[in-house]
């Protein structure tokens, strides 16, 4: 009797783990559809300049007095670069890539400024500066920040690897240098990308269905739009941001 009970318990735990914690299910996608589009700005916005405000002379020597923020990179055709485009909830689709997210502290800036990390892979954070940096990755939940990792990188060439655990949009900051910032979308499915210099993007291999696509840009804000994808065909979804 007790052995049976034990078996049941084990089964319950294993199965419930699979069934309840798995909102994304990996299947073979053959002949899936895709979403393409262009993200544009309604008007040109001047790229703000970041002031390097520090009382330590060696930091000025390394990082200068000012730096371009790279926030608004708008092409001649008004395409906006570095817009995160992602579908937060996808019930099933292709497998996630196994790809570590490399984030570097270089000359008191984070490189890259925006990017996508995948659940199941790692953050690899590097300090290439001979000054103290701490990399604080924080998940944005309902407009509030919640620390995911706060890592000390006091020395040059220090590397710390941490698994991508909580998914969603992350803001990255360095407490020692308040001007430093970066954005990472930690994705639980592979359907996320960033726009290129012309504001173009493509999300491939989606099963047919209706999806909610989110566009996020640190300056313009975010917007979520519905799009229906048919098998084997590209659906088009454009967006034009205007400055609030």
């Amino acid at each position: 009797m007790k052995k049976v009970l034990l078996l049941f318990v084990l089964l319950t735990f294993v199965l419930s783990g699979i069934a309840f914690a798995g909102p994304y299910e990996v299947v073979d996608v053959k002949g899936g559809g895709s979403i393409t589009g262009v993200v544009k700005a309604a008007a040109k916005v001047a790229d703000p300049v970041v002031k390097i405000e520090t009382t330590k002379p060696e930091e000025h020597q390394l990082c200068g007095m000012t730096a371009p923020s790279g926030m608004y990179e708008i092409s001649a055709g008004m395409g906006v670069k570095n817009v995160l485009v992602y579908i937060e909830e996808v019930p099933k689709g292709k497998a996630l890539p196994k790809m570590d997210y490399k984030l570097t502290n270089l000359k008191c800036q984070f490189t890259p400024l925006v990017g996508i990390a995948y659940s199941g892979s790692n953050f690899v954070v590097t300090n290439s500066d001979p000054v103290f940096h701490n990399t604080s990755i924080g998940l944005m939940v309902g407009g509030k920040r919640s620390t995911v990792y706060n890592l000390a990188l006091p020395g040059k060439d220090q590397v710390i690897t941490k698994p991508v655990r909580r998914t969603g949009l992350n803001s990255v900051k360095c407490d020692a240098h308040p001007w430093m910032r970066a954005w990472i979308y930690a994705a639980k499915n592979p359907y996320a990308t960033i726009t290129d210099a012309d504001g173009k993007y493509e999300i491939k291999d989606l099963l047919p269905g209706t999806y909610k696509v989110t566009f996020f840009h640190e300056g313009f804000g975010d917007v979520t739009k519905d799009v229906t994808v048919a098998a084997g065909k590209p659906a088009t979804l454009d967006h034009t941001f205007s400055k609030k």
Partner: peptide, 21 residues
């Protein structure tokens, strides 16, 4: 958690869990 399996299997496992529990 991500698992490779057929969708119908998932339905069955749900029911099984309920019964087992």
């Amino acid at each position: 958690m991500i698992v490779n399996k057929k969708p119908s299997l998932q339905c069955i496992s749900y029911i099984l869990i309920m019964v087992f529990s």
